[in-house]
Simulated assay, not measured.
Amino acid sequence: MRYILALAFCLASLGLAQPRVGTEDGLTRLVFGIPSEASYSLHRQNNEVSIRFQGTPPRTLRTLLNTPQVVGYRATPSAGGSIYVVTLRAGTRYRTLELSNPRRLVLEVRGHAATHPRPRSTARAPTAVVVLDPGHGGIDPGAVGLVREEEAVLEVALLTRRLLEARGIQVVLTRTGDQHLSPNKATDLGLRAAMADSKRTLFVSIHANAAERAAQGIEVYYFGETIDQRLLSKAILENGGGMLGQRLTQEARSVAQRLMRDLLAQANLKFSEQLALKTLRSLVRETGAVSRGVHTAPFYVIRNARIPAILVEIGFVNHPEEGRKLATRAYRQQLANGLAGGITAFLNSGNAQR
Rank of each mutant, 00 (worst) to 15 (best):
Y3K: 11
G15M: 05
L27I: 04
S36R: 14
Q45A: 14
N47I: 05
E48T: 13
Q54E: 13
P57I: 01
L61S: 12
L61D: 10
T63A: 15
N66T: 08
S78A: 14
Y84K: 07
Y84C: 14
T87I: 06
R89N: 12
Y94I: 04
S100H: 12
S100L: 11
R103G: 01
V106Y: 05
E108D: 14
R110G: 05
G111E: 05
R118K: 11
V129T: 08
P134I: 00
G138N: 03
G142R: 01
G145Y: 13
A152P: 12
L154K: 03
L158R: 01
T160Y: 03
L164I: 05
V172R: 10
T174Y: 02
R175C: 01
G177S: 07
P183I: 00
A186K: 15
D188I: 07
F203T: 06
F203K: 02
Q216M: 08
E219Q: 15
Y221F: 15
F223V: 13
D228W: 14
S233Q: 11
K234W: 04
Q246F: 15
R247Q: 09
Q250N: 07
R253G: 09
S254C: 13
S254A: 13
A256F: 11
A267Y: 02
A267H: 01
N268I: 00
K270H: 08
Q274T: 09
L283Q: 10
T287W: 11
V290A: 08
R306H: 13
L311Y: 09
V312Y: 06
A327Q: 07
A327M: 08
Q334I: 01
I343C: 02
F346A: 05
N351W: 12
